[in-house]
């Protein structure tokens, strides 16, 4: 049996191959969508602004995902968490999956996994636990999109409202979650204050955009508000804790 390490060159190579594949898929979809958007009459300059806005918007959540990689790396080394959180997964899936597999094997994630069979079992559970989520899409996609097209052709006004309602449903779930700790005292209100600061900053951006007609601010307003309120959460936390 080859000597096992959670940080072996072999595991890094496996991770790199999968990540390269996903990067290639992203590049292919980007080029196709870009051409399609141009064909639909969206100017190249507008598309560049959309791409830049999306890139900036991604930075803070991506750094948070990197923190997830670091968290998992203590037990699983770097390559497997790097791979899992760069594709398909999210920490909310990967951590319970790894914990369930480790527990079944009588191991713990509080220390680095040394046994290749335990590591392999964790990799299997992480993969099989989440892969149906990928497999459902090709089979459900046409059906769901077909339903939406029929809805749109039957009643366009309701179709637009339906989409708004869908987005609002998701936003409501996350906004509600922000209030989860308010019964625990003042520190439980910190996420609520951060949310309010973020909302106020966006309202302020809106006013500035209207008054001074700053076009670029429109593309980055959400990112600026997110990053600023994350930064402001530090003094808010220090003040209320």
């Amino acid at each position: 049996m080859k000597e096992f390490s959670v940080n072996s060159t072999f595991l890094y190579c496996v991770a790199a191959i999968v990540i390269a594949f996903v990067l290639l898929q992203s590049a292919v979809f980007l080029v196709r969508a870009w051409k399609r958007a141009r064909a639909l009459g969206i100017e190249a300059a507008a598309l560049k602004r959309i791409a830049m806005s999306s890139a900036v918007f991604t930075i803070a959540p991506a750094v948070a995902i990197l923190l997830g990689v670091i968290t998992l790396s203590k037990a699983l080394g770097l390559p497997l968490p790097w791979l899992r959180l760069s594709v398909v997964g999210a920490l909310t899936y990967e951590l319970p999956a790894a914990t369930a597999a480790a527990t079944a094997a009588g191991a713990s994630l509080s220390e680095q996994v040394q046994d290749p069979t335990v590591f392999s079992a964790i990799a299997w559970v992480m993969t099989l636990g989440i892969i149906p989520g990928v497999l459902y899409i090709p089979f459900l996609m046409k059906r769901i999109q077909g339903g939406l097209s029929r809805l749109k052709s039957r009643d366009e006004a309701w179709s637009a409202i339906f989409m708004d309602a869908l987005f609002l449903g998701m936003i409501s779930a996350f906004l509600g979650m922000i209030f989860k700790d308010i019964r625990s005292g003042l520190s439980g209100w910190i996420p609520v204050f951060v949310m309010l600061v973020s909302a106020l900053l966006l309202a302020l951006c809106g006013l500035i955009m209207k008054k001074f007609k700053i076009k670029w601010l429109e593309d980055f307003a959400l990112s600026i508000c997110m990053l600023s309120s994350m930064a402001l959460s530090i003094p808010i936390t220090n003040w209320l804790s």
């Binding site: 959540p61 936003i171 979650m177 951060v194 949310m195 973020s198 959400l222 508000c225 936390t237 220090n238």
Partner: peptide, 19 residues
């Protein structure tokens, strides 16, 4: 605290736009 509050920071601003 900044990373603990990423979701409130994100959804606070999004809420203003969509709500």
């Amino acid at each position: 605290p900044a990373f603990e509050n990423i979701l409130p920071a994100l959804f606070g601003a999004l809420a203003v736009v969509f709500v």
